[in-house]
Design a protein around this nucleic acid. Structure first.
Length: 575
DNA sequence: ATCCCGAGCGCG
DNA sequence: AAAGCGCGCTCGGGAT
């Protein structure tokens, strides 16, 4: 059954489609959790909860101790169907004018983007008048049914909605984070925590060495790129910018302390004491995931930067006593999904290995005789998928094109389509945005009267640039689809493993208190927090989920998705 | 005082 | 060793 949940202007909740078709119930907002819990525990029901926005509804259920198995997120589905080319494109003025409160992802944290410490505990979510979810669902069903790729779109919408559940659950659970270890890392690197407005001791030392090497006055502000560059110019360093890779090539006494300073400055500003104060509470990092936050369908993060955790602080990610992490990393997803999309038997074989269960794809390319070294195979494939043309990447492309013509032709065709201003689509049906008005103006500018070589060059450049975007879109977007299917499968398998925790008198049951659950996701890698006794079983399930995701996307096509899986007490111990 | 943008770094 | 995709985040500095 597919119950549809909607809020009413009086603050009550209307649930339609429970048990008998068209039957509806009205409950108070607090009673909703009980209704959902009852339906979830009915084995025959298999409800797919359908609502405007998972971020709006699911946190309330989790807070009441209710975890659900399936959902349909109308907001996310609408955004996919609105532009999908294989989907009979959805048009809905009503949904497009939905109030921002219901359309944005800001419902999770205490106050949108604000650190939780500023305003204390999460408050009530603002009520917003929604358009009728049932009408929207009907429109979406019709759009999918009328599509030439209905099965793939259904899978995409299911995976995106499952992803929305995972994202809210990961926020709910938080990442186990030992603040005292993080502080040790900072003190070792920077010195003791400075008072407000002061620089840590290590940075102060380095600043002194830098000024001495430049023969600069004590007033030189190192954090002002313009002033620093001017001082370096005066000292004859010969730097054109302050980019790390450019500085590394120069030979001057200032380079070593300057690179050290930049690295430590970054640690302090991006993941220093302020970050710790803002995003870590009660032993958990809470960073919000934005499902579909990237045009390609990848996730983004907001607040805390869970997708950008630098390796230097991962030592602070430590499992609870009696618990472990299972960390799984999918090897070379992008060339593998490319092989699947392109139907490239040779590329699939390169990633299968001797036992047929999956092995390093770049080594497989070397073994095929196409290129001489793993490094060349890697930069060559990255160049093919990103549109690189220069250096060793460009040099091996012809050899890769001979050995793997289907894969290389597939990304080239996506690039040419982008250069023509056309839309491209992922394996499951997410379409790229069309280029904007200024792009078209640049293109037509090359043919206007009086247009010279400069206009033509600019048009070529922007066409190629958009081609690199569409070339990468099909690969990155399909990799994101594989990853969402993987996580949806992991999520379902982990729940099936766990035992229902005993309810403690007077306390809300915590759904993940005794069960393995996802806590981190980084595009091609997952971290699961699990009771230690279940770690090996969890590792097996994660591998099985990767196989399942491969079958969901590519059926019997023999492309493999091997993982490297570790069991560890700390995230930093992996690999 | 506030918003916006480019530079830069680190993540995949 | 480094130029080609996608992000978040912080800073300085200019515009408002």
């Amino acid at each position: 059954m597919q119950p549809v949940v909607a809020s009413e202007p009086d603050g009550s909740v209307r649930v339609r489609g429970l048990r008998v078709k068209d039957a509806e119930r009205r409950v108070g907002a607090t009673a909703l959790a009980g209704v959902v819990r009852a339906a979830e525990s009915d084995a025959a029901a298999m409800p797919r909860w359908t609502w405007s926005d998972t971020n709006r509804w699911y946190p309330l259920l989790l807070a009441a101790g209710v975890r659900i198995e399936r959902a349909h997120d109308l907001r996310l589905a609408h955004r996919i169907l609105r532009h999908s080319v294989p989907g009979a494109t959805l048009s809905s003025e009503q949904w497009d004018t939905m109030p921002p409160a219901a359309l944005t992802n800001g419902a999770l944290g205490a106050a949108g983007h604000e650190p939780a410490t500023l305003f204390g505990a999460p408050g009530p979510i603002e009520e917003a008048v929604e358009p009728d979810p049932l009408a929207e669902l009907d429109a979406q069903r019709a759009a999918v049914a009328g599509s030439c790729e209905a099965a793939r779109l259904r899978l995409l919408l299911a995976a995106e909605s499952a992803g929305a559940l995972v994202a809210v659950e990961m926020y709910h659970a938080g990442v186990p984070w030992r603040a005292e270890i993080h502080e040790d890392i900072l003190t070792e690197a920077l010195g003791p925590r400075p008072r407000a407005g002061e620089r840590p001791a290590r940075l102060e030392d380095l600043a002194g060495r830098i000024r001495a090497a430049l023969d600069a006055p004590a007033g030189l502000n190192l954090d002002s790129p313009r002033d620093l560059l001017r001082a370096m110019d005066h000292a004859g360093v010969g730097a054109r910018s302050l980019r790390k890779w450019e500085l590394e090539r120069l030979d001057h006494p200032v380079i070593e302390p300057l690179l050290e300073y930049k690295s430590l400055f970054r640690l302090m500003t991006a993941n220093g004491w302020a970050w710790l104060d803002a995003w870590v509470r009660d032993g958990r990092l809470r960073s919000e995931y934005v499902v579909g936050g990237v045009v390609t369908g990848r996730w983004a993060s907001r607040g805390g930067g869970a997708l950008q955790l630098p390796k230097s602080v991962r030592r602070a990610v430590v499992a609870d006593p009696g618990w472990m992490f299972v960390v799984a990393d999918a090897a070379q997803i992008e060339p593998r999904v490319l092989a699947g999309m392109a139907g490239d038997e040779a590329m699939a074989a390169a990633g299968r290995g001797a036992d047929g269960r999956g092995a390093d794809l770049y080594e497989g390319i070397v073994a095929s005789g196409a290129v001489a070294t793993r490094e060349l195979a890697k930069v060559g494939m990255l160049g093919a998928m990103y549109g690189g043309t220069t250096g060793s990447s460009g040099q091996v492309l012809p050899r890769l094109a001979r050995a793997f013509p289907r894969s290389l032709a597939f990304v080239d065709e996506a690039a040419r389509a982008g250069e023509r201003g056309e839309v491209v689509t992922t394996h499951l049906g997410r379409s790229s945005p069309p280029p904007g008005a200024s792009w078209h103006e640049t293109q037509s500018g090359a043919y206007q009267d009086g247009a010279g070589e400069a206009e033509a060059a600019r048009a070529r450049s922007s066409a190629r640039s958009w081609g690199r975007f569409t070339r990468n879109f099909v690969v990155q977007g399909t990799a994101a689809e594989w990853a969402m299917c993987w996580m949806a499968s992991i999520r379902r398998r982990l729940w099936a493993l766990g035992q229902v925790p005993d309810a403690i008198d007077g306390q809300v049951p915590e759904p993940f208190a005794a069960r393995p659950h996802l806590v981190l996701f980084l595009h091609d890698e997952v971290v699961i927090h699990t009771p230690s006794a279940l770690a090996e079983v969890v590792a097996d399930e994660v591998r099985a989920a990767a196989d399942e995701a491969g079958r969901l996307l590519f059926g019997d096509f023999p492309v493999k998705f091997p993982l490297s899986v570790s069991v560890a007490g700390s995230y930093a111990q992996v690999k």
